[in-house]
Design a protein around this nucleic acid. Structure first.
Lengths: 204, 204
DNA sequence: TTCTAAAATTGAGTCAATTCTGTTTTTGTG
DNA sequence: CACAAAAACAGAATTGACTCAATTTTAGAA
């Protein structure tokens, strides 16, 4: 159909997200009042709550956009990984990390992470968990690819290894967004150092 | 010294923590109103905010008690670890996990974790990060001990390895508290499976 | 075109954390 | 034993996320 109603709906969704994204960046998540988002988006407070269950869900929609972009960028690495286990991991993780602050500030990440553990059953909580799983899957896929190529031993438990690498990276990223003064190069170096132990263990 | 004022202060701290701990368990963190905590503790709302910066800090004080107990229990394992790398790690991690739900419900953990990423600079945020660091340190200490005994290769980067193991465990624990139906034995088994990769890599 | 049910919108009202401003209590000094 | 300054307390007022009952808009059948 794509009737008037559907078009208006899509349009309002976009207006709300645009207004919220701008405000979150400007004033921070806490600083952005729903009332202000509503007036910027030219809808009422009630309408916002008709579209999103709560303030966190609005942030969630923005986070999803970002992570999906990152997942997309990662596909290229999985398809054609560098011919060296350490570099392959570093390249994929590098893509995740370098993209991470493109649309989202550290404060927005902190809030998003907090909400996803606070309300794991809310729409956003579930979506966030699913995104984490997708990232884990992608790391697993990279390992499987490296096993195919013959760079990683066949007898390695790829599923467990993928989780281990993702979990470590994710935790490091959490600590990274918690400290405003933390810098990306140091984060990447620390993760490389940790992965070196694994790389030594799994290479042919 | 130890004047009236100091004694009253300590007493009020205790009353507030006791009241809050009981209420958090009973009604959940969200369900516990500051007003109720105040009346249970026989102080006013204002006094609570004189003692704690916000509701999260009250929970934080309770979490600290719990984690310090866990750290204490862990010391025994570090001092006399099982004579096998896999078992040693499993025993230490087992202590952490088995203790974890003693005083705190999953919901309380979720809130505590959320607050610590949301407000990393609040008193509790900093305390929580310090507790994580202490746990990481303890795992590192175990590894160092195993290196001494000769169960772990000397050329292993113990610092990086400790972080890797802690980060993975912590992330698994986060996912565990996010799902009410998740069970401790499965959690431990999953972590063992992940650590197996490492154990194979670092044993002599 | 008209009419009705369903869907969407609205914003004043509710609720609970946090703040703020006086008041009371404690301490130490003359 | 006063008394003044400092510390702690009290609870009313503020604030901002979220709810809900009333109103408006759309879809589509007659």
């Amino acid at each position: 159909m794509s009737g008037l109603r559907a078009r208006q709906k899509a349009d309002r969704h976009r207006r709300i997200i645009d207004a919220a994204a701008a405000l979150f960046r400007e004033a921070g998540y806490e600083g952005a009042k729903i009332e202000t988002i509503a007036s910027q988006a030219e809808v009422s407070i009630g309408t916002i709550y008709n579209y999103y269950e709560n303030k966190g869900d609005i942030l969630g929609a923005i986070v999803s956009l970002e992570v999906n972009e990152v997942l997309n960028a990662g596909r290229g690495v999985v398809a054609r990984p560098p011919a060296n286990v350490g570099d392959a991991l570093d390249t994929l993780i590098g893509i995740y990390i370098e993209h991470s602050l493109h649309y989202l500030s550290k404060e927005m990440w902190r809030q998003a992470m907090a909400i996803s553990t606070q309300l794991p059953d809310s729409p956003f909580g579930q979506a966030y968990t699913a995104l984490d799983r997708s990232l884990t899957e992608q790391i697993r896929a990279l390992i499987a690819r490296l096993q195919e190529i013959g760079l990683v031993r066949q007898d390695i438990d790829g599923a467990a290894l993928g989780e281990l690498i993702f979990n470590n990276m994710n935790m490091m990223f959490i600590e990274f967004v918690k400290r405003d003064e933390a810098r990306i190069p140091e984060l990447r170096a620390a993760i490389r150092r940790q992965n070196r132990i694994l790389v030594a263990a799994i290479g042919v």
